[in-house]
Amino acid sequence: VEPFVCAQCRTDFTPHWKQEKNGKILCEQCMTSNQKKALKA
């Protein structure tokens, strides 16, 4: 199985991968920080 790479921070290690609607693969940490930024905006 090919390891995923986060589209935002380029890490290849995370407990959980998330896929955005646009198809980008993000690590759990980037997904969480993006959600917090969206709530602040």
Rank of each mutant, 00 (worst) to 15 (best):
D12W: 05
C6D: 00
L26A: 01
L39F: 01
K18L: 04
C9G: 03
K18I: 03
P3N: 14
R10Y: 15
E28V: 07
Q35R: 04
T14K: 09
K21G: 12
P15M: 07
W17I: 10
A41V: 12
E2Y: 06
I25R: 05
S33L: 05
M31Q: 11
R10D: 10
F13H: 03
K37L: 08
T32I: 09
C6E: 00
V5W: 02
H16I: 08
E2I: 02
T32H: 00
P15W: 02
E28H: 08
T14S: 08
K24R: 10
L26G: 03
K18P: 05
P15L: 09
K24Q: 12
K18E: 12
D12Y: 09
A38D: 10
T14N: 05
K36S: 07
W17T: 15
C30P: 00
L39V: 11
E2P: 03
K37W: 02
K37I: 07
G23E: 13
H16T: 11
A41R: 08
E2W: 01
P15V: 10
H16E: 08
H16K: 03
L26E: 04
F4Q: 09
Q8R: 15
W17M: 13
A7E: 13
E20I: 14
C27A: 00
V1A: 03
I25T: 08
L26Q: 07
C27L: 00
L39I: 12
K21Q: 13
T14L: 08
E28C: 11
T14M: 01
W17V: 11
R10H: 15
A41L: 13
K36N: 12
H16V: 10
C27V: 00
L26W: 07
P3L: 11
M31A: 08
K21S: 07
K40D: 13
Q29M: 06
E20L: 03
K36F: 02
Q29T: 03
K40W: 02
M31K: 08
T14Y: 13
A7S: 15
F4I: 12
T11D: 11
P15K: 13
Q35C: 04
A7L: 05
N34V: 04
T11A: 08
C27H: 10
K40H: 06
C9M: 00
I25W: 03
N34L: 02
P15S: 07
F4H: 12
C30G: 01
A7V: 14
E2D: 15
Q8I: 14
C9Q: 07
Q19F: 05
I25C: 04
A7I: 11
T14C: 06
L26F: 10
Q19C: 12
P3R: 12
P15E: 07
K37R: 08
T14W: 01
P3D: 01
A38H: 02
N34T: 04
F13G: 06
N22L: 04
Q19E: 13
E28W: 03
K37T: 09
C9P: 08
F4G: 10
N22C: 14
R10G: 15
E28M: 05
K40E: 11
S33M: 11
C6L: 00
G23R: 10
K36I: 04
S33R: 06
K24A: 07
K40N: 11
W17S: 12
R10S: 15
E2N: 15
D12E: 10
F4S: 05
C30E: 00
T14D: 02
R10F: 15
N34C: 04
K24N: 04
N34I: 07
N34F: 04
G23K: 13
Q35G: 05
N34R: 05
E28S: 09
L26H: 12
T11G: 14
K36A: 08
N34Y: 03
M31P: 00
K24T: 05
N22E: 14
L26D: 03
N34K: 03
T32R: 06
W17R: 11
T11V: 15
Q35D: 07
R10V: 15
N22S: 14
T11K: 14
A7D: 13
Q8C: 15
L26P: 06
E2C: 07
Q8G: 15
K40R: 14
T32G: 06
S33K: 04
T11C: 13
F4M: 15
C30Q: 00
A7P: 07
I25A: 03
C9A: 01
K18F: 02
K37D: 04
G23W: 02
I25D: 15
K21E: 10
K18D: 07
T11M: 14
K36G: 09
T32S: 02
F13E: 09
W17D: 14
R10Q: 15
E2R: 01
Q35K: 06
L26I: 09
K24Y: 01
A7K: 11
H16A: 07
C6W: 00
P3T: 08
Q29E: 07
L39N: 15
Q8L: 15
K37S: 08
C30R: 00
L26C: 08
L39E: 07
N22R: 13
P3V: 08
N22M: 11
T32M: 06
I25S: 03
V1D: 09
K36Q: 12
N22D: 10
G23P: 09
L39C: 07
L26V: 04
H16P: 04
T14F: 08
Q35E: 10
K40G: 11
G23N: 14
N22Q: 12
T14H: 08
A41E: 09
L26S: 07
Q8T: 15
Q8M: 15
H16S: 07
H16M: 07
E28I: 01
